[in-house]
Design a protein around this nucleic acid. Structure first.
Lengths: 338, 338
DNA sequence: TGGGTTTGATAAACCGGTATAGCTCCTGCA
DNA sequence: TGCAGGAGCTATACCGGTTTATCAAACCCA
């Protein structure tokens, strides 16, 4: 027999389909002896549930979705998503729930995907990344009644469940470290201004500046691309009063910035200290290797999966889980200013 | 009404469920007038097919799978997978077929996934990457009767359908370019030896050596990691007769190699030319920017999706599609030897 | 000993589609 | 005029599970 169904098992065990279903799902309705027998037969026939059939009956598809809205070009250099993905999957695989991944160009397309997924019952819930300040997706998902968890977006009143790290604390740890080294002119090359975490980081720098006695601490926003990272760096280093340290919101921009510095004859870390707000192999490949903020992205993903599953199981309680603060890994690109 | 079913549409249109199904799937059995009316009503009620229900009836789930078997750590730096993924999705989205992505640790786990997917009817077919020489997955998939397409693995007798680029030609173009510049000592830092493409590239170098008058053209295998790439480079550059050019099988290894060269005071491209067999932002971020072989990875993925869909539609004909040869993008890391 | 509850199991409905046998007209042609 | 044939549609089985109503037998306690 090619693929046994519960009906086959029922015949073989001399019971009804219903009894088999009860036995296989570990719910009351059959005696221990019968359950045992059915399980053994199912095992023998190497039975596996037909996912579609189960989804149809139980209106639960054992599958969650994740959409990444970024132009393909900018994607993939940062190992961030790969690690996040692995983590999410490890969190899901325990319950043998599968993940649908989609890469789209923009948020409009992303919302379309959610609508389709909801109406076609393709996923039980979704994981949101790259939260923006007034994020249209949040309302949309609530309207669709699709369980969701936000990664990185801290939930406020009536928000969706979330898993977040304290960007503010993290940024403070960087700036305080640089200030302790003696830096007073620190520039911040930030990411896209409408991202929530970008705003939080900018605010952290601004708030810390007076306390740490920073002379000047501009935050300059970019599109996260290496090109803009390089351009901003060039501008910063061309000023008469140039910064002695630059904090980049991504490793790619930090690497691009390092290149510009070298090109302009600005020695790192002699004349300029560089810190990347995100770690990866990239920062270690460089010479000098970059001081960077390391986050356990894998674990981040795992926790997001967990929270999502809990949310699917019980959509009424909104979980806001805070993950451990990221730590600064000091390498060769930072030193006291000369 | 929350989610309309075809039964709702049928009632509203005053026809039977069957008629609605015919109309919505564009098959004969209803008059044009009725079809029109049904479609309008479906549109009005914003009906969407329930994927599970459709899968159950039609034994086709409109979903394909892709498993990447690499330790999470090594994954993600190369934008290769991100681009491939985007391409695959663009090929699938035309038919609105979804993609299940899974990252696992090794091939054994990958095969487990295929078994599960097959028995649970979760996918209509799969896309295979990282083909090895005697690849266990091929036989397994044939046994499971799961349609599949190999990416990069060139199909021989009785092989699975495939989409491939000519690695041999590509490698030849690199070596010939270097030889034309005047290089006679060229080293090849290859990838994992059991990958099919690694073997093809090694063979290409070996075959071309005598014709191009290369004095020495060793191919040294690695695990594709930056660490081994760096280690091998250090060894090569420490030899008394060191190579004047090195070809790396990946951009990450090339970057690591560049770092080692700079560290050892070997100037690039003055004393050493470097070529990466694979392009990405990474190669452009470097100083000097790396000469690299550019492949249209996005298109590669798109074509793989196409071939897979054709294979699912008609599993009897085995397609072997060759994609355009990759081209060498010359940047700053190559020059005539001094 | 008898009535009520619990246990173990069954049959059948159901989920939302697809596929098919069959029925009713209408048309065309001998 | 009669009949074959096809268009247009309906009714119904079916896919492989889950869930519910129902029921018989066993069990419990006064």
């Amino acid at each position: 027999m090619a693929r046994p169904t519960i009906a086959d098992i029922a015949t073989r065990a001399g019971v009804s389909k219903g009894a088999v279903s009860f036995a296989l799902n570990g719910r009351p309705g059959v005696s221990d002896a019968t359950r045992e027998r059915i399980l053994r037969i199912a095992e023998q026939m190497s039975w596996r549930p037909h996912s579609a059939a189960r989804a149809l009956g139980a209106s639960r598809v054992d599958s969650v979705g994740m959409v990444i809205a970024r132009p393909a070009r900018t994607l993939g250099v940062e190992p961030f998503f790969a690690h996040l993905l692995s983590g999410v999957q490890s969190g899901l695989s325990a319950e043998s729930i599968s993940l649908q991944l989609l890469i789209v160009e923009d948020t409009a397309a992303e919302i379309e995907v959610y609508r389709r997924w909801a109406s076609e019952h393709r996923v039980d819930g979704v994981i949101l990344v790259d939260l923006t300040v007034k994020d249209a997706r949040v309302d949309e998902l609530r309207a669709l009644e699709l369980p969701a968890v936000m990664i990185g977006g801290r939930g406020g009143k009536g928000a969706l469940p979330s898993v977040w790290a304290d960007d503010r604390e993290a940024m403070l740890s960087i700036v305080e470290y640089l200030a302790a080294l003696g830096h007073r002119r620190i520039a911040h090359v930030a990411g896209t201004p409408n991202f929530q975490h970008t705003q939080r980081r900018i605010r952290a720098v601004r708030d810390a500046a007076p306390r740490l006695g920073l002379v000047d601490a501009p935050s300059l926003t970019t599109d996260f691309s290496d090109a803009e990272g390089a351009a901003i760096t060039r501008k910063l280093l061309s000023q008469s009063q140039r910064p002695t340290a630059i904090v980049y919101d991504s490793d790619v921009m930090a690497v691009a910035g390092l290149g510009v510095a070298m090109e302009m004859g600005v020695s790192v870390p002699g004349d300029l200290s560089i810190v990347a707000f995100d770690d990866s192999i990239l920062t270690q490949l460089m010479h000098p290797a970059l001081t960077a903020l390391s986050r356990d992205t894998f674990d981040f993903g795992r926790q997001a999966a967990e929270v999502l599953l809990e949310t699917i199981a019980d959509p009424t309680t909104v979980i806001n889980r805070r993950t451990p603060d990221p730590v600064l890994t000091v390498r060769e690109s930072t030193a006291p200013p000369t």
